[in-house]
Computed example of a mutant assay.
Amino acid sequence: MIRIRKAQDRGQANLGWLKSQHTFSFASYYDPQHMGVSSLRVINDDRVAPGAGFETHGHKDMEIISYVISGTIAHKDSFGNIKTLPAGEFQLMSAGKGIYHSEFNASNTEPLHFLQIWIQPDTLGIDAGYQQKAFTQTAALTAVVTPTGEHGTLKVQQDAILYRLQLSPNEQVQMPTRDMSRQLYVQLVEGTLKVNDVELTPGDGAHITAEQAVLFSAYQGPVTALVFDLA
Rank of each mutant, 00 (worst) to 15 (best):
V144C: 08
G96E: 00
L162I: 15
M93G: 02
P176M: 11
P176Q: 10
G152K: 09
D122A: 03
G129Y: 00
P147A: 11
Q131G: 01
P86S: 11
Q158P: 06
G96W: 00
L115I: 04
L85C: 11
K83M: 12
T109D: 13
T177W: 08
A134T: 13
N81R: 05
Q131P: 01
A140D: 13
G80V: 11
F104E: 06
L112Q: 04
T177F: 09
H151M: 12
Y100T: 12
G152R: 07
E110C: 04
Q174R: 14
G129E: 00
G125D: 10
D77H: 07
Q137T: 15
I126A: 00
Y163L: 14
V68S: 07
L92R: 02
A140C: 14
V68K: 12
P111D: 06
N108F: 06
A134N: 13
Q166S: 14
I126K: 00
L124E: 06
F135V: 06
N81Q: 13
T123W: 00
A106S: 08
L92V: 02
L112C: 06
P121E: 00
M175S: 08
E110I: 07
A143W: 06
D127S: 02
Q132C: 05
G71V: 12
T153A: 09
L154S: 07
P86G: 08
I69K: 14
A128L: 01
L124K: 08
